[in-house]
């Protein structure tokens, strides 16, 4: 890796100030994407501001029918939180299938969504549950947060502080993993919520998105059978050595049906 100046932030405000002071600073959450990128010399920031010591960004709170997860909470904590398991079991299960134990003990929800890898799991949960992203400046609806491949609505220097998930009536996430990386080739998060049925798809396209046709089909009949024969449109889906666009489109239907079935 190239040389950079390391800063340990003591608070969100401190992190924001240090990031602003750097010529080309980056914020580091768990470092699960940033560190490999640095090691491969694919990035050359002037400063790395580490959020690891910011206590106010960690922790899980359940109140008023919503689960709030601090941005620096690691996946393992979400997986093993009895409160999350009680309120939104699908969220705990999703966290338990991100990466491997090492990743789950270092990687954070804030880092994952700020990076917005097109095959990451958490974006599907945020969009599927209609979550709200809280930053040091404002609140952003998940539907508006993920704007494109590795792109989000975050402004320069804006720091994710937490994510608030409303508890659904029922929800499930089904992932078909890439055999090599075990990121999602296709992951579908289905939730029946007070505001309607939501079907969020990750891995298949450049960015997490909602399958509105499936949502409409499930609105009247929340059963796997309601999705029989339905696939995504292969237009604009990802295509790589692991999966064609057609295969991904098909898998969206399969994973959606399985997720609905898993909702019970």
């Amino acid at each position: 890796m190239h040389d950079f100046t390391y800063h340990a932030a003591g608070s969100v405000a401190d992190a924001a100030a240090k990031a602003a002071a750097g010529e080309d600073a980056v914020l580091m959450a768990g470092g699960m994407t940033l560190l490999p990128t640095l090691k491969q010399r694919l990035a050359q920031p002037s400063d790395v501001v580490d959020l690891g010591g910011v206590a106010e960004l960690r922790g899980i709170r359940v109140e008023g029918g919503a689960v709030t997860v601090g941005a620096m909470t690691v996946h393992d904590a979400v997986e093993n939180s009895s409160e999350v398991a009680a309120a939104i079991p699908a969220l705990a299960a999703l966290a338990g299938h991100i990466g491997d134990p090492q990743v789950r003990n270092r990687g954070t929800i804030g880092g994952s969504i700020a990076n917005n890898d097109p095959a990451a799991d958490y974006p599907a949960a945020l969009v599927g549950l209609g979550a709200t992203v809280c930053t040091d400046r404002r609140e952003i609806a998940a539907d508006d947060f993920f704007t494109g491949m590795f792109e989000t609505a975050l402004e320069e220097g804006e720091i994710v502080t937490s994510v608030r998930f409303p508890a659904p009536q029922a929800a499930a996430y089904m992932k078909f993993p890439n055999p090599a990386s075990r990121y999602a080739i296709v992951g579908v998060f289905v939730a029946r919520t007070a505001g309607g049925v939501r079907v969020a798809v990750t891995g298949a396209a450049g960015c997490v998105y909602r399958e509105t046709a499936m949502e409409a089909a499930l609105e009247g009949n929340f059963s796997a059978a309601a999705l029989d024969g339905m696939t995504a449109s292969a237009d604009d889906l990802n295509e790589d050595i692991h999966a064609s666009a057609e295969y991904r489109a098909h898998l969206v239907g399969v994973m959606a049906r399985r997720a609905v079935a898993a909702c019970g």
Partner: peptide, 23 residues
């Protein structure tokens, strides 16, 4: 079932890491 070394027609190795080469 898992391992396949893939070269592009241009001779670039498409499976050059564990993100793409399945152990």
């Amino acid at each position: 079932l898992l391992e396949g070394c893939v070269y592009g027609d241009d001779g670039q190795l498409a499976t050059g890491s564990y993100m793409d080469y399945t152990m």
